[in-house]
Computed example of a mutant assay.
Amino acid sequence: MEVSFAGKRVLVTGAGQGIGRELAKKLVKCGAKVTAISKTEKYLKSLQEESPTIKIVTADVSSPDIRKTLRLLGPFDCLVNNAALAILEPVLETTEESFDKLFNVNVKGVFVVSQEVARMMVENKIKGSIVNLSSQASKCALRDHLAYCASKSAVDMLSKVMALELGEHGIRVNCVNPTVVMTAMGKIGWADPAKADPLLQRIPLHRFAEVEEVVDPILFLLSDKASMISGIEVPVDGGFLAC
């Protein structure tokens, strides 16, 4: 199924690496005018070298200045909240600092960026689409993931309330909830069989997700092909949550 974003202005956060990076490049191939945000300038510059039409902006979604930055960049037709942070600590060793960092980026960052972009959509009468990157960790307890699981669960409910209230303006909001994804970092983090095998045994397809297997559902949910879909969470987990 072909999707087109011809003439659409799309904002992707966390676009320097991994899912966000590949998504930004594929959106360009589908005709979108992409603005890519990351807090790491070197990754953005290399992204622009690969796809020169992408507008790059070095910014932190948890920064107090992010609203002003977005106002200068917008409005947008579509938004993907991909920026996220992972700090894995056991329950008894989770620090308040780690907890706050995760929630500032994973939850408050999604809230602030979505609120500002949605306001511009409403002001400009844009029937837009927002996709938030959540995780299978929002639905299932995982060891050493206290703050991460809690933050992604918050993203799911934040998205549902946004879908409820923004629907009257023609704005759709959905989540994509992947398992471990084989980005460069994912390959490093899950290369140890002692760590990977127990999780793989719980995935009926017995493998982790490839980047494009997450990018494609995001593209679908952003597109007009999903024009009646809002307020849902799409697991990309090989059946993990079915067990």
Rank of each mutant, 00 (worst) to 15 (best):
G7S: 00
R9A: 12
V10Q: 00
V12M: 04
A15I: 07
G16P: 09
G16D: 02
G16I: 00
I19A: 02
G20N: 06
L23N: 06
A24E: 10
K26C: 01
K26I: 07
V28L: 06
C30H: 13
A32Q: 00
A36K: 08
I37Q: 02
K39H: 11
K42Y: 11
L44Q: 03
K45V: 12
S46F: 04
E50P: 00
S51I: 10
T53C: 05
T53F: 00
I54Q: 06
I56V: 13
V57P: 12
V57E: 10
T58F: 04
L72D: 13
L73P: 12
L73D: 08
D77Y: 04
L79Q: 09
V80P: 05
N81G: 01
L85T: 05
A86Q: 10
A86T: 10
I87F: 08
E89G: 09
V91K: 11
V91Y: 14
T94Q: 14
T95Y: 11
F99S: 13
V107P: 03
V107D: 00
K108R: 15
F111S: 01
V112G: 01
V112S: 03
V112K: 03
V112N: 02
V113F: 07
R119E: 12
M120T: 08
M121S: 07
V122L: 08
N124T: 02
K125H: 15
K125G: 09
I126P: 04
L133H: 10
S134H: 10
Q136A: 08
A137R: 12
C140P: 01
A141Q: 04
L142M: 15
D144Y: 13
S153D: 05
S153V: 02
S153N: 08
S159V: 06
A163Y: 08
A163S: 14
L166Y: 08
L166R: 01
N174Q: 01
V176Q: 04
V176S: 03
V176I: 12
N177P: 13
T179A: 11
K187S: 13
G189L: 08
D192G: 13
P198S: 00
P198A: 00
P198R: 00
L205E: 13
L205V: 14
H206G: 09
A209T: 07
A209H: 02
V211G: 08
E212Y: 14
E212I: 15
I218A: 09
I218Y: 09
S223V: 03
D224L: 08
V234E: 06
V234A: 07
L241M: 05
L241D: 07
C243H: 13
